[in-house]
Write a protein that binds this DNA or RNA. Structure first.
Lengths: 251, 251
DNA sequence: CCAAAAGTTCTTGCATACAAGAATGCAAAT
DNA sequence: ATTTGCATTCTTGTATGCAAGAACTTTTGG
């Protein structure tokens, strides 16, 4: 019997923990750099407007420019960084249009997903869903937003699994990033209590096998970010398009 | 006034015609190679199982391995090629699961799009839609499937524009590829007459501002490929997963 | 004759080197 | 003083060279 090793980057990397030096786990350098940058951008650890040339990044990560370049090209295609001639790679500002499009895509996909989940979920899957909600309650109690965000991701991903469409999660993730940054800002204002309540409503509907109610709850949940946008934009104008001054040597 | 040139690969490349030597238009080599390969794979010009190493491709395109590598990495992430150790880049077989997922994603997105189009389209947009349908009728009369496929893309893209969600088209495109190959095979069996009729039904509903009917028509249209899958798979088993023999020197 | 192990080779993954292009700053002219 | 042209320099885009790993082949031992 002949067999070959399939080098599918996504699956391979998906199995590994984050934040582990790639040399140990043999996570390809390009993938590692991509994930690091993406995570830092999504979490606003790297603020919009932050400049970073490929050479600089390569030195920071201790790799050559080749994998860095690959990572930056991906991020540029996703709209997370802008690449300007002679200025290098710059963390993209929040764009209202991109956030809105992301919400549109997520809504279309996740409404279909949540319907599928309500109709098809099995008992063990529902149990796991409860565990995830518990984790979120715990995060709220401990006031640990990062942990909450992780559990949030876990929940939405689990819904895909329940609907029998696990792979669709990757499409949602691609769209999600642009919303995530806005969400971090929103969080600073309204806290996570509302989000947890939304989640509980969704899960409750799914457990009742009430697909229509689950869909409504999900729609409500995703709509929230749109309602908050004006407030966020007014409060953090510097994070938005053209809101930050272009650094220029005084002359 | 300070201005910089934004090197957004997607937008930049989107503006340019295909099949023009990149050296003339300055389309980056990596992007050019990616588009060429993607187009050839989607159209089944490159059949599943076709082997192609990075070095070989580099020589064929007359560029170095670096841009080829970038293109192959993208294609691998999209599931259009598999990369095996010591065997190189191989055009991926059709995977029933991938086709099904693509249909799921497209359905979710395009139902939302077509609803938006029916609700929001302006008169000039509807006129353009009619023109596209005419082009499809013409392609049917001339029995020109390639031209029909182009007009098909144009129509679905135009629906995104009518709905005020042009950028969502790129998400649909990413999902679409996996369906396209199956569709080519389906086309060999049933021709394009049915597809045109579907399109006419969709457009008619939109022009009548009947969102619900437009959604139903679109759902019917996208469902078609799922119904055809069994037939296609039975007729072209060699194109599907594990259906093609792994080439091996006789020994 | 079969099985296992070691050597061979081919392919990808990364590092380094080179080339081209665009914004910047300065200078000069109007 | 403002504008225009040119030289500079910093950045990305591509090419090439090197190393590691896995499948294939051969050899060796039973």
């Amino acid at each position: 019997m002949l067999r070959w090793t399939l080098l599918d980057l996504r699956d391979r990397a998906e199995l590994r923990d984050r934040f582990v030096p790639y040399a140990i786990q043999r996570l390809p350098a390009a993938e590692f750099v991509y994930r690091q940058l993406r995570q830092r951008i999504a979490s606003l650890e790297l603020e919009p407007g932050t400049p970073a040339g490929e050479q600089t990044l390569a030195e920071q990560f201790g790799v050559s420019r080749t994998p860095v370049r690959e990572a930056c090209a991906r991020l540029a295609r996703e709209g997370l960084v802008d690449i300007y001639a002679r200025r290098g790679v710059i963390v993209a500002p929040l764009r209202e249009r991109a956030v809105s499009n992301a919400r549109f895509v997520r809504e279309a996909l996740e409404l279909a997903i949540v319907r599928g989940a309500a109709e098809r979920a099995d008992e063990s899957g529902l149990f796991a869903l409860d565990q995830i909600i518990d984790e979120q309650r715990w995060s709220l109690k401990r006031n640990d937003p990062e942990r909450f965000f992780e559990a949030d991701e876990k929940m939405h991903r689990h819904l895909c699994i329940l609907a029998g469409r696990e792979e669709v999660w990757f499409v949602i993730v691609d769209a999600k990033v642009h919303m995530d940054r806005a969400r971090r800002l929103s969080l600073r204002e309204q806290g996570i209590k509302k989000l947890l309540a939304d989640h509980e409503a969704i899960v409750d509907a799914i457990k009742s096998r009430d697909a229509d109610r689950a869909v409504d709850a999900m729609r409500q949940h995703l709509l929230d970010i749109d309602l908050q946008m004006d407030q966020i934009k007014a409060r953090y104008p510097a994070y938005f398009e053209a809101g930050f001054a272009v650094s220029r040597k005084a002359g």
